[in-house]
Write a protein that binds this DNA or RNA. Structure first.
Lengths: 205, 205
DNA sequence: CGAAAAATCATGCTTTTATAGGATTGATCT
DNA sequence: AGATCAATCCTATAAAAGCATGATTTTTCG
């Protein structure tokens, strides 16, 4: 089965460009497009979509807010931020709002397909280089995180303790702790400080 | 008439480097130097200065606050932020506080002269393109940290535990813990996760 | 459907952090 | 000379996090 894509961007050029670029790829199918947030939400209500490409600059609401709305109402839909620039601040906020990746519009076909593959598999994709990344955090690849792990990571970064996270997510403390341990393992660190530093450096929080 | 420069930086190396670099330039004259904010203000009270170079990290108050003070008390003095590359987070706030530009410390002579010329002419200079000014993440004062606190903070971020930090700094675990608690208080957080997230966001680690 | 992955929960134990209350020394500033 | 502050150290307790090991139930996917 092919990956179903929704593209949300107010620039017809980008829309058409992406569409035609993905037209001859078998594994991917652009099932819909929208030029604003309202249309995008409406489309998601009546169609099944795997990945939504969200432009950061939209006429009605910002892509960041739209991302949040999408994740709230359609948690199974994965989102990928589209932007013209390396806007670090936006990236981290998109990720905070549940986006699985960030794609600059000047990306080539390979990058785009790579992004789709990564995200569809539950991972992240990010092809932006924010100036210099600190050497300690740079060469690390972004580990593969599950939906729950991402949620827990964000809540840890917000300063919540395991009991608080458990309450927030309506699960037991031991479960939270499991996710937490998995995060440590996946990031190859041994405590929260390193975890947060790495995650911050990777723009995940 | 030459441009009168005041340099404020607590690193003697930077001070001397800049001074000697500008020594043989006719149009520019370093009329004073200061290693802290108090001295800087005092100097400005009794001397005429065209441009003040302000380091972002100063022992007494932050360069950001100093910038504001200078612009309040001596509006005719133009200010230029001095920063190392990993302190970009502060820079937008310097600009917000009235700075006319931003120079990374690794800048070459040409850059520096160009900056002086631009700023003296009433313009702005910036030799690093830091994406864009972040809209939402701006307000949050960088707490003043002592030398030891900075050291401890960095080591925490590197994933060291209190006992390991103690060993590294040749001090007792309880002392490390004291510094750690002070960091939590100064950043107004209650655990390591929040601390590291904030510090990372501010470019401190 | 059946296998794999994810999410859930548990027990037990050790280490680390967080919090609270001090106290002493040395340097700096007024 | 007195005040302030950084840095150092201490005791003690509670809370949280880290580590090991394992099990059950959903979800997801081929």
């Amino acid at each position: 089965m092919s990956v179903r894509i929704l593209i949300v961007d107010d620039h017809p050029l980008v829309l058409e460009g992406l569409k035609s670029l993905l037209a001859d790829v078998e594994e991917v199918q652009v099932v819909g497009t929208a030029t604003n947030a309202i249309d995008a939400i409406a489309f998601l209500k009546s169609n099944e979509v795997d990945i939504a490409f969200l432009d950061i600059n939209l006429p009605d609401i910002s892509g960041i807010d739209l991302c949040k709305k999408v994740k709230d109402q359609f948690p199974e839909v994965k989102t990928l931020a589209l932007s013209t620039f390396n806007e670090r601040a936006y990236v981290s906020r998109m990720i905070q709002n549940g986006a699985s990746g960030y794609l600059i519009k000047s990306s080539g076909k390979e990058d785009i397909l790579e992004a789709i593959a990564q995200v569809q598999a539950g991972g992240y994709f990010m092809n932006v280089q924010f100036d210099q990344v600190t050497p300690a955090t740079a060469p690390k690849t972004v580990p593969f995180l599950t939906r729950r792990e991402k949620e827990v990571l964000v809540l840890i970064a917000e300063g919540l303790t395991n009991p608080q996270i458990a309450e927030q997510l309506f699960i037991s403390v031991t479960t939270v702790n499991s996710h937490r341990q998995n995060l440590l393992i996946k990031f190859e660190v041994s405590n929260t400080a390193s975890l947060i530093k790495l995650a911050a450096g990777l723009g995940l929080i």
